[in-house]
Amino acid sequence: MPTVSMTVNGQAVSGEVEDRTLLVQFLRENLRLTGTHVGCDTSQCGACVVHVNGDSMKSCSMLALQAEGAEVTTIEGLASNGELNPMQQAFMDNHGLQCGFCTPGMVMSAMDLVAKNPNPDEATIRENLEGNLCRCTGYHNIVKAVQQAAKTMGG
């Protein structure tokens, strides 16, 4: 089996994978970083969103081997010393999560959104979260959370 190497959450990692192994499978099974989830087969739900070289991407729609040499950040890589980062804190403050399954992908997408658009209005936030499905929150409090985070993150 081929070996793949990349940097995940700042640490150099490598592992043996099948050619068909997806990035999300490598993260979850090889590295046991199970915060990144799989909620669909069609690249629609966004539960698997991680950052690859700084951009949010769906780790279920990318082969592990495609990420050779890449810098990958997962939900586990956002906090420092167990402290929630401002986006995570905003989700908690605004009750932007219920069952928590979509949450890691939602947070990773929201991080990318705010990085590229520091002052998003409600419509912009809603449009930019179109790749992330949530069945619990009705999105209301997720939008509020992203608004708060954008403010605290210096937008």
């Binding site: 690249s43 966004g46 969103v49 951009d55 949010s56 991407m57 769906k58 729609s61 990318m62 997408s109 990318d112 959104l113 930019n128 179109e130 790749g131 992330n132």
Partner: peptide
């Protein structure tokens, strides 16, 4: 096209 993550790939 698609969503932001699709557009990034």
């Amino acid at each position: 096209i698609g969503d932001p993550q699709v557009r990034n790939c």
